[in-house]
Design a binder for these strands. Structure first.
Lengths: 198, 198
DNA sequence: AACGATACGGAACACGGTTCCGCTTTTGCA
DNA sequence: TGCAAAAGCGGAACCGTGTTCCGTATCGTT
């Protein structure tokens, strides 16, 4: 098996034409740059322009806007996923580890203008994005939750998927509104996880 | 003062032409119906069709989609606002009253497919909608929060605006995803409001 | 050098909100 | 009652977006 997986989201691509690979790289960079300055909702055309590339090129490399977003943020999501077990391995209590990990996740979402909103767009075009985040992050969250539950620090009936969605939702519009501090709300939510005291 | 306020969102309109008033009524009903079946994001054209009316007609009565939404839900928002003081006047503890009131708000949001998302759309077209909800509900929430804080039931540093936004955000996509129960997350958030126990 | 496969650019299409304007209905006044 | 101005109406047209399609250009192999 030669392993030149690429499909769309996989990174390594050994077998494509040279210009194709160069363009994909260019696009990823252009997209990242545009996302930073104009938010994740920047028009595809803007990205094409920034990359000096035609629309067709974008859509061959990334069949859909969401695929482009996934590709751009793949690394960071993966990094977040890997941080979970790492935190659990420290001397932190499981609940503290969970808190830290959620913080990482929130940082990530809040940093990318509009990403949280896009994640939750009921627009079916973004199912792929949604799915990727979930596939990667929910298992990690489950692990952390379980550890904290076993340690008796939190209620044992919390569902990771629900929690992730809740946190993700809380981050929507966190930039672009100085009166709303998503971190604060997330903090409250995490506090609410603790066993109700008698 | 003759009080035939109407502008756009006010209901009573004594001074318009008969057909105009009839059409406005028709539109409100058609919109409400379409919102129920197709969600708040139904295309304006669908509403026009349902009402048997041209696009121009909609836009004269409601300069923007958001204005139409406001008009349709005005009553319910007002009812929710009025429920706040009423709950506080019962024998419930302030924190319980707050919980009930938030429940009312959540019910309202979750019932209308996509309303919560629209409320938080960073699309500037919906500023009016956003503003109306806030103007009406934040003061009530503030009152409830203060009462609970004075009673020593919750942390005293909770901002009503932030809380409303948080709750609103948690309700996004609550329908259309059986795995996500917004009420559950809101419950956790409200639990997180309680003074941290030593 | 030539040729087939691969990739490219961007015009064209679908769709949703919004604007514009010529036509119709209502109203107020003579 | 008759009629002109005012108020409304319908819907074609416009704009911004995502996505598709296809003729053309480029690559890499023979």
């Amino acid at each position: 098996m030669v392993n030149d997986r690429n499909e769309v989201t996989g990174q390594a691509a050994a077998s494509k034409r040279k210009d194709a690979r160069r363009n994909q790289e260019t696009l990823l960079n252009a997209a990242a740059a545009v996302f930073v300055t104009s938010g994740v909702n920047a028009p595809v055309r803007d990205i094409a322009a920034k990359a000096g590339v035609g629309l067709g090129t974008i859509y061959r490399h990334f069949p859909t806007r969401a695929d482009l977003i996934i590709a751009v943020y793949r690394h960071q999501v993966d990094a977040c996923a890997e941080a979970g077990p790492a935190l659990l391995a420290t001397s932190l209590s499981p609940h503290a580890a969970l808190g830290q990990w959620i913080n990482l996740f929130v940082d990530f979402l809040v940093t990318k203008h509009g990403l949280a909103a896009v994640l939750r767009s009921d627009n079916s075009d973004f199912e792929a994005l949604h799915a990727y985040f979930l596939d990667r992050l929910v298992p990690v969250c489950t692990e952390l939750l379980e550890a904290a539950a076993v340690a008796g620090e939190i209620r044992p009936d919390i569902d990771a998927y629900e929690l992730m969605r809740g946190v993700g939702n809380l981050c929507i519009g966190a930039d672009s509104d100085p009166r709303y501090d998503a971190r604060h709300m997330v903090e409250l939510l995490i506090a609410g996880l603790c066993r109700p005291h008698h």
